[in-house]
Design a protein around this nucleic acid. Sequence first.
DNA 1: TATATTATTGTAAACGTTTACGGTAACGTT
DNA 2: AACGTTACCGTAAACGTTTACAATAATATA
Lengths: 339, 339
Amino acid sequence: MVTIKDIARVTGYIIVTVSRVINNKADVSEEARSRIENAIKELDFYPNANAKSLKQALPSGITVIVRGMNNRFLVSLLEEVQRLLTEHGESTNVVFLDEIEDEIEAAVRVSKNERPKGYIFLGGSASSFHQSFHQITIPSILVTGSAEDLHYDNLSSITTDDFAAAYFAVNKLLEQGHKRIGIIGGNPVAFATDNSTRRLQGAIKALGDKGAVFDKDKDYAPGYFSLEAGYESANQLLEQDPDITAVFALSDIVAFGAMRAFNDRGLKVPDDISICGFDGIDFVTYSVPRLTTVKQNVEEIAEKCVDDLLLRISYPRSAFHLTVPFSFIDGESVAPPKK
Amino acid sequence: MVTIKDIARVTGYIIVTVSRVINNKADVSEEARSRIENAIKELDFYPNANAKSLKQALPSGITVIVRGMNNRFLVSLLEEVQRLLTEHGESTNVVFLDEIEDEIEAAVRVSKNERPKGYIFLGGSASSFHQSFHQITIPSILVTGSAEDLHYDNLSSITTDDFAAAYFAVNKLLEQGHKRIGIIGGNPVAFATDNSTRRLQGAIKALGDKGAVFDKDKDYAPGYFSLEAGYESANQLLEQDPDITAVFALSDIVAFGAMRAFNDRGLKVPDDISICGFDGIDFVTYSVPRLTTVKQNVEEIAEKCVDDLLLRISYPRSAFHLTVPFSFIDGESVAPPKK
DNA sequence: TATATTATTGTAAACGTTTACGGTAACGTT
DNA sequence: AACGTTACCGTAAACGTTTACAATAATATA
């Protein structure tokens, strides 16, 4: 491996001068600069990042921990977050965790060695990370989940107003005249602060406010965020309660799995059964029929997330908990019930 | 930041002993070990990875460069590759590149500083990376593209047999009785070694062998791998040649975009028009109708990729070019033409 | 001419680890 | 009693940079 020393030896300068050239510092003659630059090209030299950050003792980069690579919504969020961080000149280290199995603790332990400036947690809930968070002493932010109740001074959070969004969506179904609405998706091991739990609560509140019947044992089937889970939950729901005329899915992917299940049962969407999703992934406007869904504002969430984190890295201040508004995509998967 | 020195000071041992404890080396008494371990917990100490790899001067981890985070197929490949690397105890650094704009050179430059043991390039073609590859002096492998013609000694490649797969798929369409088949998708700036180019060639060969008419100007519409591009290409194709009764899409995502376009034109799949995709992403068995498609063998590709790379890292040897077989998913989107 | 200023280059120490090797004490072997 | 072995711990150097500061030469100022 060619080092700064080799460059120095070859050019006859001392390593400090080489360092200055590399970092575009002043106090270098034009001649020295050009000769050193040539040598760097010549010998194909790349400064050793380890040595650099060791010496500078500065934390570097942002570590993004993503819970579930399969989650299309999280990936689009990641894409946007990474774009913004890069724009701000921050390098990004992405760690993927399995949605279900992997413990965040291991990821944090590994990444701590890298001395990041801050953490972004995409997906997952405050509760499931609870134990791990108290180890975190640098600015961090939980996206898609509220950490307000945790009261950690360096853990911000930003999330869609899941309760309100679910309330709004279910209300839409009720307005169409649906009396019996099933709900699918959402962490089977529910915690109060999970976003899926809040969605569920919002949905139930809407049902209650309009006096609709909802029997949680029959009309609710939880499941992880996958096509398979959606497929199975939908089938389960229809077995348990044949009176259901509309389904509210706690994520789009789950909704698509459910739509396939409806189809396999000979039910047409939206004529025989209505369905509304949650997230607003790109596919919803391309599916047949287009999926009616709640759209989380990816751009705004990503922007606020990056802004808050970088701000708190530069000017230490207390964590901040933000709820961003949702929008609604009127697709083709919701219609009044037949009967 | 707490360092090994602090641990030494607190426990009364010297830093070397602490280092031994951290790395589970011998020559440490039980008492020393437990006292030091306690102190490490107490002070919440994490060894500085920079210092560690600086001293060891060993390259560490594998850098995976992914071209297009939106590409569901690549993401599933990434997922599998990362799982395998982790199983082998390798840390992974993922760099995402925009499908179109970003130059790989910048990514390589940045990651070179990290001194990875090897590179995995997911997506993209040998030709588009051509200039960048000659800078690479460590074992690397191009997945989803052939680098055989480049003759770089440290760049392996592994790819589905795109030509044969496309030939097979188009043949399926021909066997159903289709006479006029359109093709959509594939890098608009085609290079001979691009996988999309090879798919196109395989498709055209199949058409030629059966004597089917194919006018590249009318019956082919290239485009990037996105829903939007698929939608537009499909429309363009049907405008240009109304006689088309089947479409071969060079990727599933493009196929889904096209299906939406057909629907908007009042064409039913597969009654009015047939479509076959390429990749075999998870969604193909959940869409309505299920997409008939070529399935790339993600597991096998990932496994061979990781095996080859790790082998060449351990025992330097020449690069290796592999073509893995495809399979075919008989969905519901292909049927004989009406007329 | 003497002194101050500036431009450039050099010296030395430091960042937090690991590693090769030296030392000591306790014990076992002849 | 002399030696070898083992178990443990310490010393010192090294990894490839950056940084504070000193030194020198060249030039400007008085």
